[in-house]
Write a protein that binds this DNA or RNA. Sequence first.
DNA 1: CATGAAATCAGTAATGATTCCTATTTTTAA
DNA 2: TTAAAAATAGGAATCATTACTGATTTCATG
Lengths: 132, 132
Amino acid sequence: MALKYSRQRQVIYDFLMTRKDHPTAETVYQNVRQEYPNISLGTVYRNLTLLADMGTIQRLRVGDGIDHFDADTSEHYHFVCSECGGVTDLKMESIAEILETARKDFDGEIQGHVTYFYGICDKCTKSNLLRK
Amino acid sequence: MALKYSRQRQVIYDFLMTRKDHPTAETVYQNVRQEYPNISLGTVYRNLTLLADMGTIQRLRVGDGIDHFDADTSEHYHFVCSECGGVTDLKMESIAEILETARKDFDGEIQGHVTYFYGICDKCTKSNLLRK
DNA sequence: CATGAAATCAGTAATGATTCCTATTTTTAA
DNA sequence: TTAAAAATAGGAATCATTACTGATTTCATG
């Protein structure tokens, strides 16, 4: 039960901290494999889940059916590009007040909310212009 | 390309309209099968996707890895119980203003947002009390 | 430092939701 | 009535993720 150190977990976490694009488990695997050639995909999944359960990292579910991971656990929001599928950070003031709005007329305990925004990212908008 | 009537699609949509608990494809299948015994699961998936693409129904992704469907396409929010996994409607005033908040400092076009709330539903809270 | 129980691992098989494929059936415009 | 287009049933395939297993690593304790 007690957590023991593991080189693999360290490498996975270190890698995730270098990225701001919220990679998937597969992407983490492909990258970590560069310096740790025989790490297994199962180990990547297990450790990402472990880290997420501990609250050390965040698991993002943005509707594309694939889990994304984020080493930044501070309150912030995400934007998903409908064209390239990229997931980026969205710096904005807190919208935590929507919790109060939701609680107004609801029986049951509202503990939190998940919000993400979607549209077309800057990069895709620009490359679309070039294409015309 | 042109849409043709299909009895199966009709039955699927009719069933979905009777439910307010946002069933999954599997649940739709199990129920529709009662009155239409040899409908196939693939047909249910195909039609739910078709209806969602047309905007006739809504596809909900609430983080449990299974798609839920809702015949109510009006603006409203959803609550997911962390205990029983149930998805229920949440009557609350519009929080569409968070789009403006998000647009303030973002390069790229924000078209919409997905928000759902989570916690413990009334039913689970009450049955938890009984258990103590 | 040695050691052994617990944790972790690599590799692979299994799972589960969803999509794809194909031969057959249904719909519908002409 | 008929034939092209759309839809279907049934089953195979896909893909992200989880589970299993025997080997390896970690680390508290002697």
